[in-house]
Design a protein around this nucleic acid. Structure first.
Lengths: 174, 174
DNA sequence: GCCTTATATCTCATTTACTAAGATAATTAG
DNA sequence: CTAATTATCTTAGTAAATGAGATATAAGGC
């Protein structure tokens, strides 16, 4: 077996493994939402708020792919439950910024303890150099997924006949 | 700064990076579901089918956390759209196995092309040894997340007073 | 300053998806 | 053979999403 083939087999295994673990990560998030008593959409918005900080209602709609009407509902529920606050922008009074109420959000954070424990345990088996590689990979991977998301959205705007020309990449067909 | 502190900082960065990229991965999946014209739940079930192969309706309910009634709806929609087939188990005629119709499912697979391209591009910047480390990490990570999911579900069954004792892990508070 | 167009969020009627409870049907245990 | 169990489906009611349009603010042209 050539080294090229082995590298391709490796990549295929890698794809499968990443797909598997990311699917399981989704399940974990759903379980957390369940326990916190909020919907998946609500949970996703909390995640975005954690990552991006104070964002507008419109940005939540853009990122989640929900309509602005649906976001109004999400924010209503989260605000009523005390997880977030609406804050009108003083300089542009059309905008509504959503910000997390940290004390209340910490209650949700508790449900991530089993996950954090598992990750700490996992990472303890790796050297500093190895962790640095993983960090580099995670950061590069984020950029890659971000680009891919943009590329996918570009497909949405393609005329159907051009869209049909999309092909699987050369050797990774299943 | 001690090397311990640096390692902890590294882990914290790693946690943030993984969280970020996995959140983006979720968005990507949603965009795919949107383009394929199916709901997130339907998409999730397709993913499970891809990973586990032929599974029963009950297993889908168990894994997704949806009720069996909701799964009936999911499978109805997917079957009507031609993505899956219902097959009654010959040896236990109560069971209904769901299996993917590969030719039709390939249409969804197309939407993963931008993601696969991005990953191939990303991985091309790593050596075989590095990719092997990533594979090991992804596999270990999957096991970790799986365990964490079980641990979390155990919390569900805890009496409230015991549940309240859950604490953040020593040094990773934010 | 007014009028038009653009932007940001919210409202509301309708549609879609989910839950809870229980019906149906097949299997297993006594 | 009957009772208890398991697996899926059905149905009524509820929750969340969409699509269209209302409201309110901002920005640009004249």
């Amino acid at each position: 077996m050539s080294s090229t083939t082995s590298r391709e087999a490796l990549m295929q295994e890698l794809e499968e493994a990443m797909r598997r673990s990311s699917a399981q990560g989704v399940m974990y998030g759903q379980a957390v939402a369940n326990m916190a008593g909020i919907s998946n959409s609500d949970m996703e918005c909390m995640d975005i708020l954690h990552l991006e900080g104070r964002v507008t209602a419109g940005r939540l709609a853009e990122v989640t792919g929900l309509t602005t009407g649906a976001i109004t509902g999400v924010v209503d529920r989260l605000e009523k439950a005390g997880y977030v606050r609406r804050e009108r922008d003083a300089s542009d009074r059309r905008k509504v910024f959503i910000s997390v109420v940290e004390e209340k959000a910490a209650e949700i954070g508790k449900f991530y303890v089993p996950m954090q424990d598992a990750m700490l345990k996992l990472w303890s088996g790796y050297s500093d150099d190895e962790l640095r590689l993983l960090l580099r990979f995670a950061n590069d991977g984020y950029k890659g997924v971000l680009e891919a998301t943009e590329a996918l959205k570009a497909v949405i705007d393609m005329p159907p006949e051009q869209r049909a020309e999309l092909k699987m990449p050369p050797k990774s067909r299943r």
